[in-house]
Write a protein that binds this DNA or RNA. Structure first.
Lengths: 215, 215
DNA sequence: CACGATGCGGAGAGATTTTCTCCGCTTCGC
DNA sequence: GCGAAGCGGAGAAAATCTCTCCGCATCGTG
């Protein structure tokens, strides 16, 4: 692949990530094109239809996410700090987009299942280590962690986004939430949420579709 | 106003709240109509244009929000518990919508300023009381609180929304975040964010428009 | 209970937005 | 420098959105 083609591809994926985060998975591809600063033809040449783009984006993000989790585990001694480092990295990767986009209009094929499993495993390992070290309250699950990341890493709506132009506010609020996840005196309603439950929910967009797994 | 007209109005406002939260403030009014289960003519009869609808929604939500803050202060002895009660009530009111919608396409007129000031004052009073009681870390501001509410009370994207069909997950995650806001050992990056900063950001949608205050 | 007035929903015209393709020019890699 | 691959813009076709007209239903009152 020629270098300019690779550059275009990267630009399109980055733009798609932001646009899908801001406007949902049905956002016009035209908006992606504008954000990426490329011509429409460039997008449609590389990604024949919406599904191809979405699939490429999800694989890209989940792969990098898994990498971030493993790197955090290698880099930090303290399991809690490792988790924290990972969470911040996940926010920078705009983890929310992977989820937003994974959920709708996407047939889950073998490749996707594999990539997803890699990410799930890596995150579960991080969380469990932090809990076993007693640095994290035991009544939170991986699902809680992921959903908090999704919620906190989505861009703020409208003009509020300007408050966080450099992304530092996301990190501040992640820190606050992490402080809540650390062993803390207060009781919390509900029960720990597992990653598997999140995945199961991801499979059924509205009501109808069951987890559409091809093969 | 006839009783069925009142019912329609309520349905439309509730639907608009959800739709704007899910799809942003530019969501087609057609979607609001479908969600509300009314005919298009009913919406356009009651609200001549998008602005009228948005304005009515914002006033409605901010008024109820202020009421919730004051009620929380009256009901709970402990200032921290009062704050907590309020935050949960705000989530139920889908506070995010007020903000999302306030930010764009809305000329801030006298009525809006008044309603907004009422809400700001009530919330600041709650937060300050909790901090003075030493129940809340001093390095968080009203802006932090509001932004966390906005982020946590927005509906989860796509199929994930099913995880929180009854809204209990929002409350669980608010509890977790509140535990982080309570006086806690961990350091947090950044500085306390004031409410006024959020409001200022609210005024400028993208880059261009200054806070467009009529009168 | 019946009547006048108010409100409602559906069909659909017109405007706008979105998708997707063709083609002449540019850029890359050898 | 030359061939091939890639790029952007213009624009047609399709889909979506906005908003109105009108016949029927519902409400509140006498």
């Amino acid at each position: 692949m020629r270098s300019d083609a690779e550059r275009s591809r990267r630009r399109i994926l980055d733009a798609a990530c932001e646009v899908f985060l801001e406007r949902g998975p049905d956002a016009p591809l035209d908006a992606v094109v504008r954000r990426a600063g490329v011509g429409p033809a460039t997008l449609y040449r590389r990604f024949p239809d919406r599904e191809a783009l979405v699939r490429a984006l999800v694989v890209d993000l989940l792969t990098r996410l898994t990498g971030a989790a493993e790197e955090a585990r290698r880099t930090e001694e303290d399991p809690y700090l490792a988790l924290r480092r990972f969470v911040h990295a996940a926010a920078d990767l705009r983890m929310g987009a992977a989820i937003v986009v994974l959920l709708e209009h996407l047939v889950v094929d073998g490749e996707l299942v594999a990539v997803r499993r890699g990410a799930v495993t890596a995150v579960e390992r991080l969380l469990r280590a932090a809990q076993e070290a007693g640095r994290l309250r035991p009544d939170v699950g991986t699902g809680d962690l992921v959903l908090l990341c999704v919620r906190l890493s989505r861009p703020l709506p409208g003009g509020l986004a300007a408050l966080d132009a450099d992304g530092s506010l996301v990190h501040r609020h992640l820190d606050l939430a992490l402080a809540g996840l650390a062993a803390a005196p207060d009781g919390v309603s509900g029960r720990a949420l597992g990653f598997d439950e999140v995945i199961a929910a991801a499979g059924r967009p509205g009501e109808p579709a069951p987890e559409r797994v091809a093969e």
